[in-house]
Amino acid sequence: MTKLIVEDRIDRPVEDVFRAIVTPEGLSSFFTAEASAAMVPGTTVTWRFGHVDATFEVLIGEIEPDRLISWTWPGGQVTIELADADGGTRLTVTEQPMADGIEGAAQAVGQTQGWTYFMCGLRAHLLHGIRHFGLSDAIRATVVA
């Protein structure tokens, strides 16, 4: 099974990063326009993304405080692993499955853009207090065979 892995490090403690991701207040400060509830294993939450006028039902999977966050949403399974990195946090986001061939390459490009925005938005929020520095609905990446 093909999977996409995006990694980064943020100079904030693991508990701050975890809380920013699993709470609706945190998540809607940098990633979603709205999150209906906190991430609790086995529950379904609704995330709204205003820049693309989309709403997703998200089934929350395993949650281990300050270590692991997982969910299933349209397109696949996402796992975020958090680890202490000298007082900061190492984040590893894995999304799977990616389709095979050119379709999978295009899917991976799009999801890489999204996870890069996620990491940059999280960093801007946690380090500088910036809320939604802006994601354009005009950004496009195209894979041509």
Rank of each mutant, 00 (worst) to 15 (best):
D86N: 15
P97D: 02
S36V: 02
G87Q: 01
R123A: 14
I60S: 02
R9Q: 13
Y117W: 10
W47Y: 13
C120T: 15
T23C: 07
S36H: 09
G61I: 04
E81N: 08
D53T: 10
E81W: 05
R9Y: 11
A85I: 02
I63D: 03
E81D: 10
D8W: 13
T55M: 15
G42R: 03
P97K: 01
E7C: 04
S28I: 08
L122M: 06
H51S: 15
T112F: 00
A54R: 15
A105G: 11
C120M: 15
P97V: 05
R19E: 14
I21Y: 11
V52E: 12
R90A: 13
R123F: 12
I139Y: 10
A105W: 14
H128P: 00
Y117V: 12
P24V: 06
A20H: 09
K3Q: 09
V144G: 01
D11C: 04
G42L: 03
L59R: 14
W73A: 10
P65T: 04
D66Q: 04
H51F: 15
H128W: 08
G101H: 01
P65V: 06
H125D: 09
M39E: 06
D84I: 02
S28M: 04
E7L: 03
C120Y: 15
R12F: 02
P13W: 03
A85N: 14
E15C: 14
F133L: 13
V14Q: 09
I63Y: 04
T23G: 07
G76W: 10
G134T: 02
G88I: 03
G104E: 08
W47E: 15
V40C: 05
D11Q: 11
G88W: 05
A38P: 12
L82A: 02
T116H: 04
G50L: 08
T79R: 14
A99M: 07
S28K: 05
V45H: 03
T32R: 08
M119K: 03
G50V: 05
S28N: 07
A33E: 14
V144M: 09
T112S: 04
W71A: 07
Q96M: 09
R131W: 06
V40W: 09
F56R: 07
T116L: 02
G50C: 07
